[in-house]
Amino acid sequence: MSTSVPETGATAAQSAERRAVRTRWLLVSPAVVIIGCVGILPLSIILLYSLLEPAEYAGVVWTFSPEAWMGLVLERDIFDDTLGLSSAHLTIYTRSILQALFTTVLTLIFGFPTAYFIATRPAKERNIWLFLVTIPFWTNLLIRTFAIMLIVRDEGLVNHALINIGLIEKPLAILYTDVAVAIGLVYAYLPFMVLPLYASMEKLDFRLVEAGYDLYANRRRVLRRVIVPLVKPGVIAGCILVFIPSIGAYVTPRLLGGGKNMMLGNLIANQFGTSRNWPLGSAMALALMGLVMIALVIYVRNVTAAGQKSHG
């Protein structure tokens, strides 16, 4: 060390910094490469596919065509080849959006009181509740949907009970209707609403609630004017977490809706299956993604706005 040129502090700092940067990039690169190649690159491939023509048996023909994007809402008349609105597609879109909105609202109505109740339990009890809500969150959606199927079928528990007590004679046809899908979606995504709501309610400072009561607000007004505004980020997060998967739902409508009550997810999957129209399926998938991105942007905006308000 005495013979070599002594490294000054500054250059030692620089080389340490360089080493740190190199290690850092080495460490993130596998994740970034895997997701980049198999998660993100395919999105640009379907963007490309959406601008091509469908091949006869699956796949694409490499000629440009705007047909797929037009096909989102339009369809060609089989006889005279004129363009008209595709009522079949529009029905499915409307159904998907309505179902997703309905699911979001209903899970919020049930989820908000539940999350609040959990957040106000004593610590031990709270952990049990949390555990009980987390289990369905992580258990297989397919199996939970199957369980609903068992209950709403013609020979299912609900009909069985109703006939037994003499309320109805013939079983109600619930399975393979929009109602069944709605029940299934609400059931499936309820935990997705409760958990983020809980996360923000857990942080709720109850001194603020006390201050509300102290200033003559009654329970309802404390809820509306103090609690709801404070947990707004959680409400928005919960709504997003329910809305996004329910608008693109595939399993629930497939099992509970049958062929007649398809949603967007099934329609897209069909283009890659029986309908053999990959470009149209790609365009629809991208449109769905666009919708989701808009929802996410609204979320981010709202959350940052809420954050600024609480700081300002």
Partner: peptide, 14 residues
Amino acid sequence: EHPTDGRILLGGED
């Protein structure tokens, strides 16, 4: 941390 400028000596060695 590394100094931006100057030296730290320990027992006379940098």
